Amino acid sequence: MLINLGRLLILCVWGFLLFNLFHPFPKPLKYFIDVALFFMVVMHGLQLVLLKATQPISYWQETKIFIFGLFELLAWQKKRPLHKNK
C-alpha cells in the first residue's frame, strides 16, 4: 500500500519536473527545477546502472526502476525476501 503511494508520489514529481520543460516557471524557480530534474535523472540512472551490474533484468524492469527508483526496489525486496541460513 505505502509502496504504491510512493510510486504515485514519484510520478507526480516526474510530472512536475517535466512540466517545467514545456511550460517554464518564472526564472529563479525554473533553474532550481532544472537542477532537480538533472539530479533525479542522474540518481535514477546511477541506481539502474549499479543494479544492472549485479543482476540481469528485463527492459520492462529497467524502465520501472528508472521511473520509480527506490520504491521499485522496495517492491522487489518485498516480493523476494532474503533467506537467512540458520
Rank of each mutant, 00 (worst) to 15 (best):
L2S: 08
I3D: 02
I3L: 08
N4G: 12
L5A: 15
L5Y: 15
R7F: 12
L9P: 03
I10S: 02
I10A: 04
I10L: 07
L11M: 14
L11R: 15
L17M: 08
F19K: 11
F19Q: 13
N20V: 09
N20T: 02
F22L: 08
F22D: 00
P24K: 08
P24S: 07
F25N: 03
F25D: 05
P26W: 08
P26R: 10
K27V: 14
P28K: 03
Y31L: 15
F32G: 10
I33T: 12
I33H: 05
F38V: 11
F38P: 06
F39Q: 09
V41Q: 00
V42N: 00
M43D: 13
L46W: 06
L50N: 14
L50R: 13
A53Q: 10
A53Y: 03
A53M: 06
Q55I: 15
Q55L: 13
I57P: 11
I57K: 02
Y59I: 07
W60Y: 04
Q61M: 08
Q61H: 09
E62K: 02
T63P: 00
K64H: 12
I67Q: 01
F68E: 01
F68T: 01
L70T: 14
F71I: 03
E72G: 00
E72M: 05
Q77L: 04
K78N: 09
K79M: 13
R80D: 14
P81S: 15
L82M: 08
H83P: 15
H83I: 14
H83W: 13
K86L: 07
K86M: 03
K86P: 00
